[in-house]
Design a protein around this nucleic acid. Structure first.
Length: 425
RNA sequence: GUGGGCGUAGCUCAGUUGGUUAGAGCGCCAGGUUGUGGUCCUGGAGGUCGGGGGUUCGAGACCCCUCGUUCACCCCA
């Protein structure tokens, strides 16, 4: 057992899995940049106060925050999500609206790890600040949908709901509390405790005992203002226009307090663990103001990278790996030819690796084979004497002798031409 | 934070009611093939059996503690 290993809830993303993460990020960036979103990179930690706006009744704030005092006596916290930091950033820099940004990075929550849930977890997401347009909600949702489509997933379901405006929501919470209180003897002990803190969360209970009580609970529908109802109706009509399938789920409440009006969640039916939500988001019109900025509406989503890849595994899709090598150089002389040729071919734009430690030709050939390279470039004493090398196609096993001076041309013929890398000389 | 399962080689796992030097497959290294990979054959390296304590003549196995991991709850991506 080594002296050190990863801390609980964290892990090393090793190749080839790490290559898949980068590929997923690339797919995401491609989707959202096609809609005019630009990348933003906020800090990983912020003043604790930024995150306290997520809601003092939420677990994210009350027990999962990775907070600490730094050497200057500041109370800071590792971000548990990106949205609050991005709203703080907006309030600080006041960019022109609508501000359409995307991000990719780690978040931190002090929870006990389980399938699809880690203390350090990655999300990709988008936020739009400065517009109340319901069709913007649709655009945001549609980009999330397209992301899963481009990964090749077919197990993703979209659930939408409206939490109404602040006043609607408060009236609803009151009604919900009153209802649950009168039925509290039928509720589980856990749900009774939840009821004290946040009646909305009781709707999320997965305990069978609570099912019937929840089924009879008042729904948010009856409490929506005319404006909120119209907004939600536009969202649904927009999704219809794009032929994006969805289900209205009046029990969908989301875990953070800042949501208003539209909320949505993407769940994967391919996941059989307890965590099936691969992403979610909604509208948060009061958050920027809460953080001391101008009253600014906002809408966005975050997708869990880990869970999305788990769902891809379960579906057997998006099995992207790292790009293979073009060539592997085998030098059984003094190694200088490999050194020289590798440098030249890389400058010419090829992906090239080689062996070290003066191993036997057989050993180097095995490494070349495992590397996935298409071509082996072999330099033995005969080739070295003739300023040449043997090009062996590892797929067909055909090989021929070429002059070192003609190497780029001959390799191009086998693996295709490449664009030379930029040099300063 | 609470509860259950599991910790034996790099990986996946065997290991009988406690009984000699702890095994297999895959992977890795070397050789067969002194200039050629993917197949095959042979050999080799690699383990304080998660850690600590206890029971016993004797513990990988049994007991306690601890750490880690995993699944679930809480909650969430």
């Amino acid at each position: 057992m080594p002296s050190f290993q990863t801390s609980p809830g964290t892990r090393d993303i090793l190749p080839p899995q790490a290559g898949r993460w980068r590929a997923l990020n690339a797919v995401f960036a491609g989707v959202v940049e096609s809609a005019g979103f630009e990348c933003v990179i906020p800090p990983m930690f912020e003043d604790l106060g930024v995150f306290l706006r997520l809601g003092d009744a939420t677990d994210v704030v009350t027990k999962e925050m990775y907070d600490f005092e730094d050497k200057g006596g500041r109370r800071v916290a590792l971000r548990p999500e990106h949205t609050a930091g991005i709203c703080r950033s907006f309030a600080q820099h006041r960019p022109t609206t609508p501000w359409k940004v995307w991000y990719s990075g780690s978040n931190f929550r002090y929870e006990k790890a389980q399938a699809g849930r880690y203390r350090q977890f990655d999300q990709v997401g988008i936020e739009v600040l400065g517009s109340t347009d319901a069709l913007l909600d649709v655009e945001v949702i549609s980009l999330g949908w397209r992301f899963f489509q481009e990964l090749g997933m077919s197990s993703v379901l979209l659930m939408v709901n409206s939490l109404g405006d602040l006043a609607d929501r408060e009236r609803y919470i009151d009604a919900l509390r009153a209802y649950f209180v009168t039925h509290s003897e039928s509720l589980s002990a856990e749900s009774r405790a939840t009821l004290e803190r946040n009646p909305l969360r009781v709707l999320d209970s997965k305990r069978p005992q609570d099912k019937s009580v929840i089924a009879g609970a008042p729904t948010i529908n009856d409490f929506l203002s005319d404006e909120a109802r119209e907004h939600f109706s536009l969202v649904c009509r927009g999704l219809d226009q794009l032929s994006i399938p969805y289900a209205v789920n009046t029990g969908l409440v989301r875990g953070l307090d800042y949501y208003q009006r539209t909320v949505f969640e993407f769940v994967s039916t391919a996941l059989d663990s307890a965590q099936t939500a691969v992403g979610g988001g909604g509208r948060y019109d009061g958050l920027v103001e809460d953080l001391g900025g101008p009253a600014t509406p906002g809408v966005g989503f975050a997708m869990g990278v880990d869970r999305t890849l788990l769902a891809c595994d379960a579906e057997g899709v998006f099995l992207a790996g790292d790009a293979p090598l073009d060539a592997f150089i085998i030098d059984v002389t003094d190694g200088f030819a490999a050194l020289r040729i590798a440098d030249r071919l890389r400058a010419a734009g090829f992906r090239v690796d080689r062996a070290f430690d003066g191993r036997s030709m057989k050993a180097q050939m095995k490494v070349a084979d495992r590397s996935g390279a298409q071509v082996a470039i072999i330099i033995g004493s005969d080739e070295a004497a003739a300023h040449s090398c043997t090009l062996r196609d590892l797929g067909t096993s055909e090989q021929r002798l070429v002059l070192e001076a003609d190497l780029v041309e001959n390799l191009s013929a086998l693996v295709g031409s490449r664009t030379p890398r930029r040099t300063t000389s």
